[in-house]
Design a protein around this nucleic acid. Structure first.
Length: 280
RNA sequence: AGAUAUCAAA
């Protein structure tokens, strides 16, 4: 079963969810018992290609099986519903499984909180946050990062900073995603110098910038037309063996275009070709 | 030894 599940996961990663399902069908026809992890793999495969409906159908098929849906499978579906913006449906499913006696966990709450953040439903965000804490399911770095990101995107970096303070007080280490989210928050309100401070502090705290951190900073500088600073970070990242990607180049190209520096744009496009970075 | 949650351009 483990071997077959690994194989199906491989097919899903390759974008061949259809083949994985076919394979599963063949197994079932031969009366081979698949377990909940196998079903979880397929359900996740469907969810990740935007087929939440089909995933739910597969979940319903499980209900008459020996392999019963577990919390991981429900978490997968709840997350997918949230990402589709169907937070009401996600919450209904959550209520239903709690009634069924399934022990929900930090994944369940984190997905729901993310969903309500995306929808801007802050009342629900705080509700689920307090509920999980009451149930002694402690928010982890993923949960906190979602809050930092959502507040930053809203332009509320002050509140985002408060979340960082809570994390530190609770002994939760900040990671690269925490910093990237906050840096982006400052860039979005055009406080690029503040963003740079956070970027520098992060290194001092032993968290090294990744390609995304550089892309965020470069984009911030491009948006305020500080192309020299953008280019200097662009060079710096490459000294650190961080390879700029399509997103990094897009920010730079956009910045140079808007400043009418077409020959610099040409150089960037040439560099992309040389490095086999796909243009989109 | 196998399945689920967080961050960047347009």
């Amino acid at each position: 079963t483990i071997t077959l599940t690994t194989l199906m996961k491989g097919l899903c990663i390759n974008g061949e969810v259809g083949k994985a399902l076919q394979f599963h069908g063949t197994m079932v026809a031969q009366r081979f018992q698949l377990d909940e992890v196998s079903y979880g793999t397929l359900i996740n495969g469907l969810c990740k290609i935007g087929q939440t409906k089909a995933a739910i159908q597969l979940l319903q098929k499980m209900e008459g099986q020996v392999a019963k849906p577990n919390v991981v499978i429900y978490n997968t579906i709840i997350d997918s519903l949230c990402k589709d913006g169907l937070v009401t449906e996600a919450r209904d499913l959550f209520t239903e499984i709690v009634v069924q006696g399934i022990s929900v966990d930090v994944f369940t709450y984190t997905s729901l909180i993310h969903g309500f953040c995306i929808m801007g439903q802050w009342k629900e965000v705080t509700w689920f946050l307090s509920e999980m804490i009451l149930k002694n399911i402690n928010p982890n770095v993923y949960t906190f990062n979602i809050l930092v990101d959502a507040l930053s995107k809203k332009g509320n970096v002050k509140e985002a900073q408060n979340v960082l303070a809570v994390m530190i007080k609770g002994g939760q280490k900040l990671d690269i995603v925490t910093y990237n989210s906050l840096i982006d928050g400052y860039c979005l309100i055009n406080e690029v110098n503040k963003a740079r401070d956070v970027f520098n502090t992060m290194a001092k705290r032993g968290v090294s910038a990744n390609v995304r951190s550089y892309s965020i900073m470069i984009n911030g500088y491009c948006k305020i037309k500080q192309l020299n600073e953008a280019m200097s970070l662009f060079k710096e990242m490459q000294c650190k063996n961080l390879a700029p990607n399509t997103v990094t180049y897009s920010s730079l190209i956009d910045g140079f275009c808007k400043s009418g520096r077409i020959s610099d744009v040409q150089d960037l496009v040439d560099a992309m070709h040389r490095r086999n970075i796909s243009l989109n």
